[in-house]
Amino acid sequence: MNAVQVPPVWAVDTESLTVRFGGVVAVDRVNLQVARGELRCLIGPNGAGKSTLFKTLTGQQKPSAGRVRILGQDVGRLERHQIARLGVGVKTQVPSVFDGLTVGASLRVAAGRHRERRPVAAVVDEVLEQLRLGAVRDRQLATLSHGQRQWVELGMVLATDAQLVLLDEPVAGMSEEETARTAELILSIRAGRAVVVVEHDMRFVRRIADRVTVLHRGAVLRDGPVAEVLADPVVRDVYLGREEHVRA
């Protein structure tokens, strides 16, 4: 007897996802599947629909049509906090942290929302070690560098035991050294979870991505292994603005 084939439970699974603002189509029938354990980058020129797609995955924007499943559950009608409870962690481009708190206190707040309710102290110690932030544990966030603040917010996401991590331009404004360290950290957190990164820095994308999805005018232009996609002349033309060469 043949074994029954069980379809995979994707971390992200969109089907003909469409978002309209009046007569403007910001996301155009996007089909996107991201596996658990995968690190996917979403790229595209300005106005390609990356931010709108990101907001739809996090519950900040409702779909106009199509379907969004996160970790196996349809989230089209769920609010942001309900999506977060499924095991979704979001780090925005601008750190949303409290300057008056210390690093340790910030992580303790996040660890209190850990999905498996592990001891808070153990979760904090684990995250501090993983992100190598032990030396700044007792410093207020207001005294940290831009890169350090970004790493603390990433740590707050990890402290919740997120199974899907969504990162919006995580290296914006960082130095080359900070960017390199951020790449190392993101690669280190992927075990057992899916990571989706919206990013403009192509050197950073080459460092971290398994697969790349290129958006153009709200639709998926190309999707595949990072080296293959970034070498595609059509993708290059889109980034250089030579849209007359883009094939339908």
Rank of each mutant, 00 (worst) to 15 (best):
A3Y: 09
A3F: 11
Q5T: 14
P7S: 14
V9T: 15
V12Y: 02
D13A: 13
T14E: 02
S16A: 14
S16K: 14
R20K: 15
F21T: 00
G22C: 11
G22W: 01
G23S: 08
V24P: 07
A26C: 06
A26N: 05
V27C: 04
R29E: 12
N31I: 06
L32A: 08
E38N: 01
L39V: 13
C41K: 02
L42R: 05
P45F: 09
G47N: 10
A48K: 15
G49L: 07
S51D: 09
L53S: 04
L57T: 02
T58S: 15
Q61T: 15
K62P: 00
D74F: 07
R77M: 03
E79R: 15
R80I: 13
Q82T: 14
I83C: 10
V88I: 08
K91G: 00
T92D: 03
V97P: 07
V97Q: 04
G104S: 14
S106C: 12
L107D: 04
R108A: 06
G112T: 12
G112W: 08
H114K: 06
R115A: 14
E116T: 05
E116Q: 12
R118F: 06
V120I: 15
A121L: 06
V123H: 02
V124A: 09
D125F: 10
Q130F: 10
R132G: 05
R132K: 13
V136W: 01
V136H: 00
R137W: 10
R137N: 03
D138K: 11
R139G: 01
T143A: 14
T143K: 12
L144A: 07
G147H: 04
G147C: 12
R149G: 06
W151A: 10
E153L: 02
E153H: 07
L154T: 02
M156A: 11
L158I: 14
L158N: 11
A159M: 09
A159N: 04
D161H: 12
M174F: 08
E176I: 05
T179S: 05
T182G: 03
A183E: 12
E184V: 06
S188L: 10
I189W: 07
I189Y: 03
R190F: 09
A191W: 10
A191C: 05
G192P: 11
R193I: 03
V195L: 11
V195K: 01
V197R: 00
V197K: 01
E199Y: 03
E199K: 00
H200P: 01
D201F: 01
R207C: 07
A209I: 07
D210F: 09
D210L: 08
V212P: 02
L215D: 11
G218Q: 10
G218L: 04
L221N: 03
R222D: 00
P225H: 15
V226W: 03
V226G: 01
A227I: 10
L230S: 06
A231L: 08
D232R: 06
P233V: 04
V235E: 05
V235N: 03
Y239I: 07
Y239H: 06
E244H: 15
H245N: 07
H245Y: 15
R247H: 08
